[in-house]
Measured scan of single mutants.
Amino acid sequence: MPGGGPEMDDYMETLKDEEDALWENVECNRHMLSRYINPAKLTPYLRQCKVIDEQDEDEVLNAPMLPSKINRAGRLLDILHTKGQRGYVVFLESLEFYYPELYKLVTGKEPTRRFSTIVVEEGHEGLTHFLMNEVIKLQQQMKAKDLQRCELLARLRQLEDEKKQMTLTRVELLTFQERYYKMKEERDSYNDELVKVKDDNYNLAMRYAQLSEEKNMAVMRSRDLQLEIDQLKHRLNKMEEECKLERNQSLKLKNDIENRPKKEQVLELERENEMLKTKNQELQSIIQAGKRSLPDSDKAILDILEHDRKEALEDRQELVNRIYNLQEEARQAEELRDKYLEEKEDLELKCSTLGKDCEMYKHRMNTVMLQLEEVERERDQAFHSRDEAQTQYSQCLIEKDKYRKQIRELEEKNDEMRIEMVRREACIVNLESKLRRLSKDSNNLDQSLPRNLPVTIISQDFGDASPRTNGQEADDSSTSEESPEDSKYFLPYHPPQRRMNLKGIQLQRAKS
């Protein structure tokens, strides 16, 4: 015994090295194993092979420090690593049964499904019991997946119906949107047309105001020219009257000059006056001389005659003075006559000038009245044309509004008919989907599995289990394997941990 101590140590070291070499393959693929292994699927088989106990299973599945599946799978690998070579062998058998691809990844061999460990530990009855539990578990999982698949199909059909409904609603909204954009385009076109009409109206108003201003300026210029013409006519008439007055005065002077006595007659009258003065002096001298030589009687007679002569001279002087006064009065009367005649001529000139001015103003008033009548006639014609244009424009607008209203009513009726057609199509689609759903539900009910399987069917299934373990590994792997896509769409199922009653199965096998 003492001599065998070193050999035992060498043997233990060799086993430990082999164990480390075995687990080295697992550690190399630890990331892939932790990512894809579900500990809840492996722990029943590991407990059946007595590699882990209930406490280890509870620690792996329910520990609060292991929230994710990767953490739980890593903890399970750590626990199996502590179990040595047996933990490695049982772990590979569980991978061979549940995850053939991972088994091939770790060992590089094809899975054979021999279950040597569980046969050694529990015997064939334990293997049968384990396989029966796994089959029931798989059936329950398949039923749950079928239910989930039916629910998802129903949800899918519902979503398809909602999608069709949303599509129809979208078509309806597109119809309304198209109608909205069309009405918006019509409104924009009408606004552009309105702005264009306003611009045209403004341009016409500006043109009309400009023409009116030009016409008023032309009328004012015409009036100024007419006033200048009238003033020139007035000056012409005044000059004609002055010329006529000057002509009359010149004719009067000419007549006075023609009626003036001649120079010879004046000289002859002056000679006669001198001769008479000479004779008068001679007679006076004779009379003076006679007075001195005459007697007293003759002197008395001469005195009487002288007195008579003096009286006659006085009378004559009075007559001469009277004649002079009369001549002066006649001259003054002639001057007054000439003055009055001049005033008369001036008044006649003024009267004729005023008459011509009156005629001029009368003509001017007639011209202004004619212009006013023409302006009123043009204004009435413009008003009439404007009223006709406004009436025609309003009539066109009324007809346009009428046609637009008819078009809008027809478009609304068309839209309502399209919407009604879309709604009826939606109703038809809904009815078809309901009919299809009812038909599929009836087919699913016919094809669904019963909840409680008979014992004979279970025994028959387990009677055929042994050949399947040898020759149909691919079928078992397809039913027991969970793909990543299934984990996305289906909830994980945790079967209840219970042991099955095998009395009925044993009785059935005894009868057979």
Rank of each mutant, 00 (worst) to 15 (best):
R75D: 01
M32F: 03
K69F: 05
H129R: 01
L61I: 06
I70V: 14
L46M: 12
L80F: 01
M142H: 11
P111N: 10
P64Y: 09
G4N: 09
Q48E: 12
G4Q: 10
F115G: 07
R72M: 02
L22R: 05
I37Y: 03
N71Q: 09
L95S: 00
N71A: 14
H129C: 05
E110I: 02
D10K: 10
E125D: 14
L80S: 01
M65K: 03
N29T: 02
K145D: 07
N25W: 01
G87F: 03
D56G: 05
E13L: 13
D58N: 13
I37N: 03
E19T: 11
D78V: 05
L66A: 05
A40I: 02
Q139D: 10
L66R: 04
T112R: 11
E24N: 02
P111E: 15
H81D: 03
V119N: 15
E110G: 05
I118P: 15
D146I: 10
A144K: 12
L76E: 04
K143H: 12
A21I: 03
E18T: 11
L22S: 11
M8F: 07
E24Q: 07
Q140V: 10
H81M: 05
N133Q: 12
I136A: 14
K83D: 03
R30H: 01
K41D: 05
P44D: 02
M8G: 13
L138Y: 00
E54R: 12
A21S: 13
E122A: 05
E57Q: 04
L66N: 04
D53F: 03
K41Y: 03
K69P: 03
T82I: 06
E24C: 12
R35G: 04
S94A: 11
L77P: 02
P111Y: 04
R113A: 04
E24R: 05
E7K: 11
K69G: 03
L80H: 02
K143G: 11
M12D: 13
A144N: 13
L77V: 07
L66G: 00
K69I: 05
G84N: 04
R72T: 05
D58I: 10
F130W: 14
V135E: 05
Q140D: 08
M32R: 10
N25C: 09
S68H: 03
M32I: 03
M132E: 06
L15R: 10
L127V: 14
S68Y: 11
S94R: 02
V60P: 01
M32C: 04
S116P: 15
A73S: 11
L105T: 09
D146W: 06
E125S: 12
E96S: 02
E93T: 14
R30Q: 03
R113S: 15
L76Q: 06
R35P: 04
Y11K: 03
L138W: 05
E121P: 11
E96G: 11
A63P: 02
E7Q: 12
T128M: 15
L22Q: 04
L61K: 02
E57L: 02
I79T: 02
R113W: 00
